[in-house]
């Protein structure tokens, strides 16, 4: 077992009066891919978003328990969310490029961190796009609008944009759910490459995808963590009946 990167203890989250997560305790190891599966509304995306405090944007959210990233409680009052999010990057379900050029999109992160030298930015942009396997496709049109890319390219560019701020953890919220099979395959290939350097947490509706890309799988149901373990075990010999029923497609 590798080192534990993220550790949650009794994490409970309320939207107003509704409990969305019930006492989740989970250890996510470093430089592996951890997948969250479960039916819609089971709290897996919500849980993912607590890991870089994106839920802070919603006024009615209340959180108890602890989330430790590298043994630091990120819900401590002293924590600067901005620095946390630089370390814990996020890729969203719907690709969300800014209405700017590809270059400007990727350079945005480094820019707000104070890197302004053109040669530095060019280097970062190129290496980020290369890591996201999209460099070859866009190198001649870096200064065209990112809106002109296809859905799959946009998503990979968004991953490149996330990589450009040099995070250690990448959270992916159904990154391939809006993409065709070929683009999905590319994203999965990319995830496989990225796990050499990054800790990846991915939420997915697609069970085959979870089985293909992840090392560990967590099954959520109605705000509770039902089962968590090696992907192979979860998909072949799960401990809980509930998990088995979901994976075999009997519900959800």
């Amino acid at each position: 077992m590798k080192d534990i990167k993220i550790k949650t203890r009794d994490l409970t989250l309320y939207y107003g009066a509704n409990m969305a997560l019930n006492s989740i305790s989970l250890d996510i190891p470093e430089k592996e891919v951890t997948a969250f599966i479960g039916p819609s509304g089971c709290g897996k995306s919500t849980f993912l978003r607590t890991l870089n405090r994106m839920n802070d944007l919603i006024d009615s959210v209340r959180i108890t328990g602890e989330v430790l990233v590298d043994s630091v409680n990120i819900y401590d009052k002293q924590i600067d969310v901005v620095n946390l999010r630089k370390k814990v990057g996020m890729v969203f379900q719907k690709s969300n490029p800014f209405a700017k050029s590809i270059f400007e999109n990727v350079a945005y992160g480094p820019r707000i961190n104070g890197i302004n030298k053109k040669s530095d930015l060019e280097g970062i942009v190129e290496s980020s796009l290369q890591k996201a396997f999209i460099w070859e496709e866009v190198k001649d049109r870096l200064h065209d609008s990112a809106m002109g890319l296809s859905g799959g390219q946009q998503q990979r560019m968004c991953i490149a944009r996330t990589l450009a701020v040099e995070p250690e953890i990448i959270l992916m919220d159904e990154p391939a759910s809006a993409l065709d099979p070929i683009s999905t395959a590319k994203i999965e290939e990319l995830i496989f490459e990225l796990k050499k350097d990054y800790t990846i947490v991915i939420v997915t509706h697609n069970m085959q995808q979870a089985a293909r890309v992840s090392d560990l799988t967590a099954f959520f149901y109605l705000g509770e963590l039902i089962e968590f373990g090696k992907t192979r075990k979860i998909f072949t010999t799960p401990d809980k009946k509930h998990t088995e029923e979901y994976i075999t497609g009997r519900f959800g």
Binding site: N52, V82, P97, I112
Partner: peptide
């Protein structure tokens, strides 16, 4: 999504 993308990049 714009706002979220930007915030998630540590802005």
């Amino acid at each position: 999504t714009y706002t979220e993308a930007s915030l998630a990049l540590g802005a």
